[in-house]
Design a binder for these strands. Structure first.
Lengths: 211, 211, 211, 211
DNA sequence: GATGAATGAGGGTTCATTCAT
DNA sequence: AATGAATGAACCCTCATTCAT
């Protein structure tokens, strides 16, 4: 009996989250209506405010699984990469490709939430996420450059902006591919092209320096 | 004296546009309030609806100068480029750099309006603009590839998606630079780096094909 | 040359009337918009206010032809009727039928305006018209009763209300027929049935008295 | 004490309904203002939208008691009528008169709401009501004709239109009487005259057929 | 005869949020 | 844990009308 109430409330919270997912998907964060969300969830607005502080908080809770998931994924990839011998990093694009494919798997398994993320890039919470992601990538880029092209970092070509821009280039490229709603295989293929392109671009910058 | 009425009315429309610019800059299109705009312009809401059909129409009129300006700029650049000898296109990145700088000049001279454009990418009218821009770039890329690497277009690497992605890569890169609020010279410098990177990336894709 | 301006303005007035007819037909008086009317007529609102005092006045001018026409028609019919020998009035329904058909002819020749009349019976101007019409019918009924059943008017059965109600019964019956959008012949046929019914009802009232 | 909230809220809804009744009575549906209604009820506009979907819904809720009441009344009358021996129907107008008086009682007990109904006949919801009413009367007329004058229905005189027209004739007659704002007794008297008239008219049509 | 500009009030509706119970 | 009621401000937009020119 003492579990009953708890169980019920968990259901309510889940119902609210699911209703919110459907609403955010259809209308985007800004145009979404808490009233409609509560109606879909079959509860009144008061119930929502028991579980969530406000609209922002609800949104944050909705996308948390994917923001957490992606950040974890990236962390693991970067640790693997740093553990590789330097030589491999230069000649071998396999680890990059593998990480990309792993990300695509995650995307297609969490497509609905990922789309909410991508379709609300003007939302502060989402911007914070992308900034975290980009900063993580920045740090990785700098670490790799220290190993692969030590001259590059002292040179003014690889300034903070360039590094950051490179991070966003990768992010935007991936987003662009996902916006085509390809099937998974086609997306992987396209991601390979992007990877080759970005490596080529990067090397052409590094080459200009070290020589 | 006979011009008084005309002058007054023209002023009202300009006042409305200016008030709208300030409002859109501060709040973005969606959260902007027509009431506040009219208050800023010192007129009643009815006056606004004499000059503009609705909120959308007001927005379209606000950004028209920059959307038109940018599309014209790009058109001119692409015509110049197509008029160059093929050999120059491969070896010489000058025309690209020159066009980039010209764009930056335009941006810094119309910064306020350009920022409205960039900060409302989710607005349908703006999306139409970016699509027009990207399509123009797509066509140019295809034309250039036909000249520089005839094999590339038949190969499946340079499919429609890749070309389109390349267009957005350039657009996103430029937007990213602009988001740093650099001074003009720093922006030009950074744009040069981007240009070199993109050419390098592109060549590495083409190289993978022709060999 | 001196006629030019006059001619032009007459056109404007006609354009306004025609635009108003189309607007009133589509939206009814209340929901009609003077703006839209002016737009349809290709003039500005100021022009409308040169020719018409306000929205009411415009409406009155639009329906004037049919209100005048119908009142004239009825007057003629009633004069004819009063000129007939008493005996004929009792036994012969021909004049009633003929008048009805004449009215139907008028209706089908001025259908658009007549429909505006019928579809805006809550409008004061239209109510005035129907009151005039009903009063005219009232007077006629009383005159006829004096001839045909002198006892009826002193009896309390044929009080003012009964007479008035009888007028509206006829009006409503005709309106009801017209609401079916029959072709002219079918409408005439139906009107004959109504006429027979109303005469029968009337006689049964009169009979109840004289005996 | 624990009932306080409930009591308060019920009051609010009733206050809104009452305020709406007063507003609809004064201005008619179309020109009624939700703001004024809320002000009269002493609540904010939001409160209204908690209880009612929109203006239409409020209107529908206001008139529901009388539309429901009248339809119920008519249903009962018609069932009683059909249960009577055929002979009585022809010779006896008592049941008709009794039903009429019962209706008048209802009218004078719900006069304010009934007037809203009668004064907004152009409103869709009201039109639906009158159509329901008329259809009910149509069916009854046809049933009675089958018993009283079997030949009438096959004859083209009593076509669908005639039957429907007869229904509206009765409705309009009653409405016309009510528009005079008579006291109850005077109205009953007048209604008797109408009843006799309509029976007489009807019989004269039937007579024309059966002979 | 007609324009173009502007008024100012008001329309119905939606919103995120609060809070006593 | 959740309800039901209510707030109050704000939303975009439309209206008939006026008037100097």
């Amino acid at each position: 009996m003492s579990r009953k109430a708890g169980t019920v409330s968990e259901d309510t919270q889940k119902n609210l989250i699911n209703a919110a997912i459907s609403e955010f998907t259809e209308y985007g964060f800004q145009k979404s209506s808490l009233r409609r969300i509560c109606a879909k969830a079959g509860v009144t607005t008061g119930a929502l405010y028991f579980f969530f502080k406000d609209k922002e908080d609800l949104f944050a809770n909705v996308i948390a699984p994917v923001t957490d998931g992606i950040l974890t994924l990236m962390k693991e990839h970067y640790e693997t990469e740093l553990a590789s011998p330097a030589q491999e990093l230069i000649t071998d694009e396999n680890e990059d490709v593998r990480a990309g494919e792993e990300f695509l798997e995650f995307y297609y398994q969490n497509k609905v939430l990922c789309r909410i993320l991508l379709d609300n890039q003007d939302h502060p919470v989402v911007q914070v996420f992308f900034n975290q992601l980009a900063e993580m990538m920045d740090r990785q880029t700098i670490l790799l450059l220290k190993v692969l092209a030590p001259g590059a970092i002292t040179d003014h070509t690889f300034n903070e902006c360039t590094v950051h821009w490179f991070s966003y280039l990768l992010i935007d490229s991936v987003i662009h591919i996902l916006s085509h709603d390809f099937d998974k295989d086609r997306a992987k293929e396209q991601l390979k092209i992007v990877t080759r392109f970005l490596r080529g671009g990067m090397l052409s910058l590094v080459a200009g320096i070290t020589i």
